Simulated assay, not measured.
Amino acid sequence: MNTSRGYLVIGGLVLAEAALLFVPVAILGAAINWPESLDFAPSQALPLIDGQLGQVRLGYGIYLVYSLAWVLIGPAIAWLALGRDKQVGPLFVVAVGLICAWALARAIGIIRWLTASTFLAETYAAATPEMRQTIDLIQSSVNAWGGAIGEILGVSLFTVGWLVVVSLIILRNGGLPRILGWSGLFVAPILASPVIELFGMEASIFISTLSIHLWLFAAGFMMVGMALFGKEA
Score class of each variant (00 low, 15 high):
Gly174Ile: 04
Arg172Leu: 06
Ile111Met: 06
Ile135Leu: 08
Gly181Tyr: 00
Ser117Val: 01
Ser117Cys: 01
Arg5Met: 14
Ala78Pro: 11
Ala26Lys: 04
Gly12His: 11
Leu210Val: 12
Leu157Ser: 08
Lys231Ala: 11
Ala41Lys: 14
Phe40Arg: 03
Gly147Cys: 07
Ala126Arg: 09
Leu21Asp: 07
Thr115Glu: 09
Glu151Thr: 04
Ala218Glu: 07
Val94Phe: 13
Ala101Met: 14
Phe119Gly: 03
Leu15Pro: 12
Thr3Pro: 09
Ile111Gly: 03
Val94Ile: 15
Ala144His: 09
Ala219Gln: 06
Gly154Lys: 05
Leu38Arg: 02
Ala107Asn: 04
Gln44Met: 12
Leu58Phe: 02
Ala19Glu: 05
Gly154Asn: 05
Gly97Ala: 12
Glu197Ile: 06
Ile32Arg: 00
Leu28Phe: 00
Met201Gln: 14
Ala78Ser: 15
Arg84Ala: 15
Leu157Ala: 12
Ile111Pro: 00
Pro194Asp: 02
Tyr7Glu: 11
Ser37Leu: 03
Leu91Thr: 12
Ala19Pro: 07
Ala101Lys: 05
Leu216Tyr: 11
Lys86Gln: 15
Leu64Gln: 06
Asp50Val: 00
Leu163Gly: 06
His213Met: 13
Ile179Asp: 01
Ala233Cys: 09
Asn173Glu: 15
Ile152Met: 08
Gly161Asn: 09
Ala103Glu: 00
Gly109Met: 02
Lys86Thr: 11
Ala227Gln: 11
Ala26Thr: 08
Trp215Gln: 09
Val23Gln: 00
Gln133Leu: 12
Val94Arg: 09
Ala148Tyr: 08
Thr134Asn: 04
Leu82Ile: 12
Val93Asp: 11
Ala203Ile: 05
Ser204Pro: 13
Leu91Lys: 15
Val88Phe: 15
Gly161Tyr: 08
Glu122Thr: 07
Val65Gly: 03
Tyr124Leu: 01
Pro177Val: 05
Gly161Lys: 09
Glu17Arg: 08
Gly174Ser: 06
Gly175Asp: 04
Thr123Pro: 01
Leu20Phe: 09
Leu176His: 05
Thr209Glu: 13
Asp136Ala: 01
Trp34Met: 03
Ala78Glu: 10
Val56Glu: 00
Met1Trp: 11
Ile135Val: 13
Ala127Thr: 05
Thr128Ile: 03
Thr134Ser: 04
Trp79Gly: 09
Gly74Gln: 08
Thr3Asp: 15
Ala218Asn: 06
Ala26His: 03
Gly220Glu: 12
Pro189Gln: 11
Gly147Asn: 06
Pro189Thr: 06
Leu82Cys: 13
Val155Trp: 07
Ala19Asn: 07
Ala31Met: 04
Tyr63Met: 09
Ile138Glu: 06
Ser37Ile: 03
Leu15Glu: 14
Ser4Asp: 15
Ser67Cys: 13
Arg57Lys: 06
Glu36Gly: 05
Leu28Met: 02
Ile212Pro: 05
Pro24Asp: 02
Ala148Pro: 02
Gly6Pro: 07
Glu17Val: 10
Pro189Asn: 10
Ala103Val: 04
Ser37Pro: 10
Trp182Tyr: 06
Leu153Asn: 02
Val14Met: 09
Gly154Thr: 02
Ser117Tyr: 01
Thr128Ser: 13
Pro189Lys: 09
Gly184Gln: 01
Gly74Phe: 08
Pro90Trp: 12
Trp113Arg: 00
Gly11Pro: 13
Leu8Ala: 14
Leu68His: 05
